[in-house]
């Protein structure tokens, strides 16, 4: 009942509303336990800081941005969001195995573009998302989802602006997807 067979009997996904209720309850549980919401981009930030610190420790300390996250006691990877993101990966793996979606490495793309185009665009998208998430103080999960759920003004702002601007840009990049 909850696992719904989609059109064409292809991938078995959860009913989106069921998934949404689960996700909402998870946000609630996370706030209840930790007092703050979920996140994802913070882990990548920790990874960036760690690499700079490993290869150029002085540089990391000099950098006005990274130095905020460098500490003498422990590595920047020793961070709540890093562990949580590891969990995201394993959770995804678990679900993928359960529903039979873990397969050999592949690239998903619209038939109108080649995989190479898709990968280049994905890289650009990632770079933009990375830069934007630092300005926005979080990404879709940290700022938009958890922020909105806790009634933070910034969270709702980020949520509306991300979706609004994505809709605004959608027309120009429609070839990539449909």
């Amino acid at each position: 009942m909850n696992v719904q067979n989609s059109t064409n009997n292809q991938p078995k996904y959860l009913n989106p509303y069921f998934g949404g209720v689960l996700l909402g309850l998870l946000v609630l549980l996370t706030v209840y336990i930790t007092g703050r919401g979920l996140g994802a981009s913070g882990a990548v930030k920790s990874a960036v800081v760690t690499t700079t610190e490993t290869f150029a420790p002085d540089h990391a300390r000099d950098n006005a941005y990274e130095s905020k996250f460098v500490s003498d006691d422990h590595s920047p990877m020793y961070n709540w969001l890093v562990f949580e993101s590891l969990g995201i990966f394993f959770g995804g793996l678990l679900s993928g195995l359960l529903f039979g979606r873990v397969k050999k490495f592949r690239t998903e793309h619209s038939p109108k573009i080649t995989s190479k185009t898709r990968l280049i665009v994905a890289l650009i998208g990632g770079v933009l998302f990375g830069i934007g998430s630092q300005f926005g103080r979080g990404c879709t999960s940290g700022a938009a989802l958890s922020g909105s759920a806790t009634f933070a003004f910034g969270g709702v702002l980020v949520m509306l602006t991300i979706f609004g601007s994505a809709y605004a840009f959608a027309y120009f990049f429609r070839k990539l997807w449909i």
Binding site: L38, A40, S41, A43, V44, S85, I88, V121, A122, L123, I124, G125, G126, V127, L128, F129, G130, I131, G132, S133, Q134, F135, G136, R137, C139, T140, S141, A143, G154, L157, V158, T161, I162, F163, G164, S165, A166, Y167, A168, F169, A170, F173, L176, W177
Partner: peptide
């Protein structure tokens, strides 16, 4: 936040993912 979110929106439509 507004600027960052617009950049993220563009990244979203290009990349097709968000970090999580």
């Amino acid at each position: 936040m507004l600027v960052g979110s617009v950049i993220m929106g563009l990244g979203f439509i290009l990349g097709g993912f968000c970090p999580g």
